[in-house]
Design a protein around this nucleic acid. Structure first.
Lengths: 208, 208
DNA sequence: TATTTAATATACCAATCGGTATATTTTTGG
DNA sequence: CCAAAAATATACCGATTGGTATATTAAATA
């Protein structure tokens, strides 16, 4: 069998290539179904591999689920970072965040839904390790938003009276609520309306 | 065995009494764990009953899960209705809603979490019947909030320029986001901060 | 190309899954 | 209190669960 050697050189082993492939295929399934509702048959059927291959690359089901969550989240956060690179202005970056989430319903469907929402709810009172990962990601996202706001204050774009972290948490909370409602009701109104609302809040309460 | 006959007269059959008992015990378990992660052993262990009793009162696992969800939601909505009866003023009722949710974290923990959030996420792409029930409840809640706003407009308490349904959806979206964040991060800040925010929005954008 | 090593497939494990047919017990109405 | 009916318990079903030990195959090295 022939591999892409330039990738192969970076990945070094075939198992790492297989691990990557497994995650690509399996991540949306775990994200969509949740941990308990995803069986190893689902995994082997979707990948076309056997249990031997799966357990050769991942310690157990939990290990695979965690890796799948991190895989999805890293892709998503890279995508957001790319989008935010479209402006150097902190306040414009905030508008780019709402802009990103206006297309989030279509985009996240490919991932099997919003990983933070789905795994956050699924792991609560179920899987401690997975829940820890979700919390870590939420904190990371909020830190990044808070940093943008602080940069905006330093740059003189945003009022210095704003509590950056508190505001970042508010933005995050409203976005997650909108995502939940849009998915549950299958209605993009919630995301679009919330992003409009957030834009006007940023305009009124943040901009100097 | 001796029953409470005054209840017994209302309930007529012993099976209905048992059904009620099963739901009381099982509803928090389904709400906490989700459908797939709740097994019939969980149900029989928690109730101290056997499969015969469970399947004598409910058609199957799905039927039981739906009944459990409706049981929790009806209790919750009665509780909200009771709380809102503390005022006759529509705008005061809106403040009573945020007031209710300020204590929601502690209260809903007894239920095994927020049923709308938990089952909404769990049933998405998994259980069609259950998802339909969740949607029905969300619409019902939003209709009730919209009616309060419309009553407020009629009573001259709320600006007539407000789109009642749109505003009700916004309130609902923000509350659900706050609940998700508070549960996932195990931090009541999100609910408390969001309720403060909602209060000031009601004050600024609704009150005449 | 031969040999070692890594990766995957196969076959199997006990335990548990949701569900059911039937036996037993409990409750009900006369 | 007794017979009929309702409700619950028991014992079982095939299928599937996550996981593993071992056999086989593919890949890397020399």
């Amino acid at each position: 069998m022939v591999y892409f050697y330039y990738i192969y050189k970076v990945m070094t082993t075939k198992a790492e290539l297989t691990s990557q492939y497994i995650l690509e295929v399996v991540a949306p399934i775990f994200n969509k179904n949740g941990y308990a509702a995803t069986s190893l048959s689902d995994v082997t059927n979707a990948t076309g591999l056997t249990k031997g291959a799966i357990y050769g690359n991942f310690k157990n089901k939990e290990d695979l689920a965690i890796a799948a969550f991190m895989f999805t989240v890293k892709n998503m956060m890279k995508r957001i970072a790319d989008h935010l690179s479209n402006s150097d202005s902190p306040i414009e970056k905030l508008f780019l965040i709402t802009d990103f989430y206006r297309n989030y319903y279509d985009y996240s469907k490919q991932l099997g839904g919003c990983p933070v929402l789905n795994i956050g709810v699924d792991a609560n009172n179920q899987n401690t390790l997975l829940l820890q990962k979700v919390r870590y990601i939420i904190e990371k996202i909020q830190d990044q938003v808070a940093t943008i706001i602080e940069d905006g204050i330093e740059a003189g774009e945003i009022s210095s009276e704003v509590n950056a972290m508190k505001f970042a948490k508010r933005i995050d909370t409203m976005i997650q609520g909108a995502i939940f409602m849009t998915y549950t009701m299958d209605d993009n109104f919630y995301i679009l309306d919330t992003m409009n609302m957030l834009d006007s809040i940023i305009e009124k309460e943040l901009r100097i």
